[in-house]
């Protein structure tokens, strides 16, 4: 295990683009953890200074101030926490739901398999963002409901992936051997199939994070995310529309933040895929 981790790190360190991705993600995590220390005005998440509203970027306010006179830079740092929480929990739940369903459906060759896959097909047939909007709108705007909406619409991607991978793993000799030795289906699935398909799951999860953050921001933008005065990035962009183009910094700061984080996940995910999943490797990577 240690060997393979070392291998991954040494491979990654030679891939400049995924290093950039990794750097962005580490920065995001650090920012989220140390937001109260890094933010020049940590109280501005809930505190307002209306006389100072819509000030441009300056040394006092790196990204300017918003419609309530709060420091946008400080709010963006705290917004990172919400973004991470939404992405990690939503993707985590999707993995926890999607992977077992994919494993069971892939291992079984009965009606259970068909049933599970058809259910996931139904979810995949509706565009994810539209389904998420419908769920979040019905349940009312809040962080919890965004997470719920994202998880409910995201798990089929993992179920599909794990299903396909499991089906191909079942033809491998080591699986046949363990079945011949009398291993239980659970044992085969969890101890033989799962470890061998984990690399695809990790890659899918990393890239999926980026997509989740984008969808979460879209929900926030539409007013279905956490309500005001939450510093959630998508919501901040929605708020800023009234003040464009004069207060350009207001929309720019959260826009750039979302862009960097999504790019970070994608670059890092691409790098991971090249190492862990050589079949789908980028062509220029030799």
């Amino acid at each position: 295990m240690l060997e393979s981790t070392k291998f991954i790190i040494s491979k990654l360190s030679r891939d400049r683009t995924s290093l950039v991705g990794a750097f962005l993600l580490i920065a995001l995590v650090l920012i989220a953890i140390f937001a109260p220390v890094l933010a020049p005005y940590p109280e501005d998440v809930t505190e307002f200074h209306p006389p100072e509203r819509l000030f441009g970027p300056s040394m006092l306010h790196f990204f300017g101030t918003d419609r309530m006179g709060s420091d946008i830079f400080s709010r963006m740092l705290f917004g990172a926490r919400i973004t991470i929480a939404i992405a990690v929990i939503a993707v985590g739940v999707s993995v926890l739901v999607g992977v077992p369903i994919g494993l069971i459906a892939g291992y079984n060759r009965s009606w259970i398999s068909d049933g599970l896959m058809r259910i996931s097909d139904i979810f995949l047939a509706v565009p994810q963002i539209i389904l998420a909007i419908a769920i979040a709108q019905t349940l009312g705007p809040s962080i919890e409901n965004v997470i719920l909406a994202l998880s409910a619409t995201y798990w089929p991607f993992w179920a599909r992936l794990v299903y396909a991978e499991t089906r191909s793993a079942l033809t491998e000799t080591y699986v046949e051997a363990s079945i011949a030795l009398g291993a239980s289906p659970f044992r085969v699935m969890v101890f033989h199939v799962l470890p061998n398909i984990s690399s695809s799951i990790i890659v899918r999860t990393t890239i999926g994070m980026g997509g989740t953050i984008l969808t979460a921001a879209a929900l926030g933008f539409l007013g279905l995310g956490p309500p005001a005065p939450s510093p959630e990035w998508g919501r901040t962009i929605a708020e800023s529309r009234e003040f464009l183009p004069e207060a350009w910094w207001y929309a720019t700061a959260p826009g750039v933040a979302i862009f960097l984080v999504v790019m970070g996940f994608n670059l890092f995910g691409d790098g991971l895929r090249d190492i862990l999943d050589p079949r789908t490797r980028r062509s220029n990577d030799g």
């Binding site: 809930t46 307002f48 419609r67 309530m68 009312g140 007013g223 309500p227 005001a228 005065p229 708020e239």
Partner: peptide, 25 residues
Amino acid sequence: TEQAAALLQNGLSKIGVKSKIVSEP
């Protein structure tokens, strides 16, 4: 309406009253 709600929430928090804002169409 959101700005007024946020401003009221801010005032309420200073007198120790908890509140949450619900923004709906």
